[in-house]
């Protein structure tokens, strides 16, 4: 920026110093909670309970992670969450594109009415109980499908994709494709979807994180423990405190209690790992995606 290269006044210099300090402070506040949980998870349970861990790991061990390894419920949870996330996101993307594309076509006569029908659901909902009864009537209780079908479409994400189709893919492209005898399905699959890759990547990330992080519907509709996603397992272990199952491997009661405490830290890390691993690959598209959505649909 040329503006920055101009001669600085005292006020501006003060500003820059304050600004860098502020940003550094923000950085520390953002990272400290994450660092402390990671450090604690690698520390020895004795150091952890004695309050010696305040920044870096003390007496590094992998005991916490070893404990997780032997905990079957955690693996079942991770496995279930993986299925719900992959299956759910696939369904999400299909339904989203199928809704977004027709609504982006100006020659689709009923598109304004349909768009309003979709948008209205963002501002008004039937509520928890009627939805609960519907799920019950549909026989989705204790079925894996309950984690996939009732959340098949997020209207906001659909609007993001629609706006992208509308503003980034020219009408002439469609006209020339139609002249060549390309029908709508072919056009969507062969031209529109490939051209919308950046926005689809962002929306897929949004859906993925929503699916991986879902707690409420799993808690409401899945009673069978074998179907629980990791978020429900996490709540049981971390917030309700039902960790007695691993205490058999530890020698004494106080030992077991310390191990349970350590396990909690490792578990938070393990459960957030999938999202953190995906994050670097998609982060460059973030701003792009959120900006497309900001343009009024």
């Amino acid at each position: 920026m040329t503006v920055n290269k101009m001669k600085k006044t005292t006020g501006d210099r003060v500003f820059d110093v304050l600004n860098v300090s502020f940003a550094t402070f923000v950085l520390l506040v953002m990272l400290y909670p994450i660092i402390i949980v990671i450090s604690s998870s690698f520390s020895s349970p004795y150091a952890l309970m004695a309050g010696k861990v305040w920044f870096l790991p003390v007496d590094v061990t992998l005991d916490g992670y070893k404990a997780i390894f032997g905990y079957k419920q955690i693996w079942t949870g991770m496995y279930n969450s993986f299925i719900y996330t992959v299956g759910g996101t696939a369904v999400n993307m299909i339904i989203t594109v199928l809704a977004a594309y027709p609504l982006s076509r100006k020659d689709f006569t009923i598109r304004n009415g349909i768009a309003l029908l979709f948008a209205f659901t963002m501002w008004f909902s039937g509520g928890l109980i009627p939805t609960y009864l519907l799920i019950k009537d549909l026989g989705l209780f204790n079925s894996r499908w309950v984690m996939i079908i009732p959340t098949a479409l997020n209207v906001w994400n659909m609007i993001i994709v629609r706006t992208y189709f509308q503003s980034n893919i020219s009408g002439e492209l469609l006209e020339s494709a139609q002249l060549d005898g390309c029908d709508d399905f072919k056009y969507l699959l062969k031209i529109a979807v490939p051209l919308a890759k950046p926005v689809l990547a962002v929306v897929a990330l949004y859906y993925m994180s929503a699916n991986w992080n879902t707690f409420m519907s799993a808690y409401l509709y899945l009673q069978k423990q074998s179907l629980h996603p990791i978020q429900v397992v996490l709540r049981e272990i971390l917030l309700i405190g039902s960790v007695e199952r691993i205490s058999t491997s530890a020698t004494s009661d106080s030992n077991a209690q310390m191990m349970n405490e350590l396990l909690k830290y490792s578990l938070v890390i393990v459960a957030s790992l999938p999202m953190i691993l995906v994050y670097p690959f998609v982060q460059k598209y973030f701003v792009q995606g959120i900006m497309v959505g900001a343009v009024k649909g």
């Binding site: 950085l27 953002m30 992080n213 707690f215 709540r235 971390l238 459960a271 957030s272 994050y279 973030f286």
Partner: peptide, 12 residues
């Protein structure tokens, strides 16, 4: 680093 926490679940 400020975007990252957005992707953590409420349970986390």
């Amino acid at each position: 680093s400020t975007y990252l926490p957005h992707f953590l679940s409420t349970v986390i």
